[in-house]
């Protein structure tokens, strides 16, 4: 008789993918200086809208990665803890997926990441409410429309053509730079080989001056990501919820 681990059962009773997944990320919080280079690089790579000062005040900022800050102790003996870059954890059993009424956020079978299908999204924001990491952002307005956002008149010339420019009323989130994954796979396939570890990386990892972010295959034990994960001092945030996050945080290393 086979026993089924209930933590491995996803929405609609389907067995979720094996716990290791395909693509993963390791973020070394000991190295992170909180410089926000990843946040900037991500915004450039993924055509993330600049919402402006007023809308940011309403909490409508759209970033796929953010640097979280925490403090410990009581005033005046306050000590800052490590900076914590927070992005979509690409959960193996994502809480955002089963709640979408339009099936706009689904699990990619081939890349095993959580994808947002913009043309299917109707903007119920249910996924954002159900995300324990609070990493989804909603397009409250057409921030990429010149009539709404004057600043975009010149900024639109630096849009990445490989990424959809999102419009009003849809949810968006980190895609693990799936356009780069596809590009690397396409290049490798045209040359008749497999994608090598470290051949490409996400925009945030590429921009990180401290090399605190490492991206790669978690199902390949030889990859740098797998080796860093095996070091033993890694933690996965809110893994007790059974979300099977794909991002591992390293804290307190040697």
């Amino acid at each position: 008789m086979t026993t089924i681990d209930l933590n491995m059962v996803g929405a609609k009773g389907a067995l979720v993918e094996a716990a290791e997944g395909k693509w993963g990320m390791v973020i070394d919080q000991d190295l992170c200086t909180g410089c926000q280079a990843c946040v900037t690089a991500c915004a450039m790579e993924n055509n993330i809208a600049f919402v402006g000062e007023e809308d940011a005040g309403y909490g409508r900022s759209m970033h796929w990665i953010r640097i979280e800050r925490f403090w410990e102790g009581h005033y005046p003996h306050v000590k800052m803890t490590h900076y914590q870059p927070m992005l979509c954890q690409q959960c193996g059993k994502a809480p955002c997926e089963p709640v979408c009424p339009a099936f706009a956020t689904v699990h990619s079978q081939s890349e095993q990441v959580n994808v947002q299908v913009y043309n299917r999204c109707v903007g119920t924001r249910y996924c954002g409410n159900n995300c324990p990491y609070q990493v989804r952002s909603f397009n409250w307005f057409d921030y990429n429309d010149e009539r709404i956002n004057k600043a975009i008149a010149t900024l639109k010339h630096q849009f990445n053509p490989d990424v959809t420019v999102r419009r009003r009323g849809i949810m968006e989130k980190c895609s693990f730079c799936i356009q780069r994954i596809h590009k690397a796979q396409d290049k490798a396939k045209s040359e008749g080989r497999e994608v090598a570890d470290g051949e490409f990386t996400t925009a945030c990892a590429q921009a990180c001056p401290a090399d605190a972010i490492v991206f790669g295959r978690v199902d390949n034990p030889e990859s740098l990501v797998s080796q860093l994960m095996a070091e033993g001092h890694g933690v996965q945030h809110l893994s007790e919820l059974g979300t099977l996050p794909r991002v591992t945080y390293l804290v307190g290393g040697q």
Binding site: V106, S108, Q109, S110, E111, V113, V115, Q116, V117, Y118, N119, R120, V163, T164, S175, I178, Q179, H182
Partner: peptide
């Protein structure tokens, strides 16, 4: 898996 995946064309 690859050809019928949403993420192959939509991202």
């Amino acid at each position: 898996k690859k050809l019928l995946d949403c993420a192959t064309c939509h991202y």
